[in-house]
């Protein structure tokens, strides 16, 4: 009985993590400039990893494997913001201009719009 409940919860977490990952990948394709793509990548790095690893931890029960999975999650959550920040800072100092959009004029319709040009 309780086994079934744990299976259901962990299955839901695994599938939810996968769906969040696909949404993040979709955002990676659909967002108009590099800096907004960083947010989509952040989505796949945080909640997707969190849900999948939590689902796996529920499956393994309490063992050495659980600790290793928790360590993976810890390392991922510690390194991913550092990598994002390094990427953002490097791109900024290299002159990749952030796309500033006015609220009244959303022209982010094409996915392959260059990071530099936004002609309306």
């Amino acid at each position: 009985m309780s086994n079934l409940v744990i299976d259901l919860i962990s299955g839901g977490l695994l599938l939810g993590g996968g769906v969040i990952g696909v949404l993040g990948g979709l955002g990676l394709l659909r967002f108009p400039d590099f800096y907004s793509r960083l947010h989509a990548a952040g989505m796949t790095d945080t909640l997707c990893a969190l849900m999948i690893i939590t689902g796996l931890i529920l499956q393994t029960g309490l063992s050495l494997l659980t600790l290793k999975l928790a360590l993976i999650l810890l390392f991922l959550l510690f390194t991913s913001p550092t990598a994002s920040h390094a990427l953002a800072k490097a791109a900024l100092s290299d002159g990749v201009e952030p796309l500033e959009q006015s609220p009244k004029n959303p022209d982010a319709d094409s996915a392959d719009q260059g990071a530099s040009s936004s002609n309306t």
Binding site: L23, G24, G27, P32, D33
Partner: peptide
């Protein structure tokens, strides 16, 4: 993180609403 992810997921599905600044 969970609430922010849900918000960004909504924005992915309707990218017209974003206003990066």
């Amino acid at each position: 993180i969970i609430s922010a992810n849900i918000h960004v997921a909504k924005r992915v599905l309707s990218p017209k609403g974003i206003r990066p600044h």
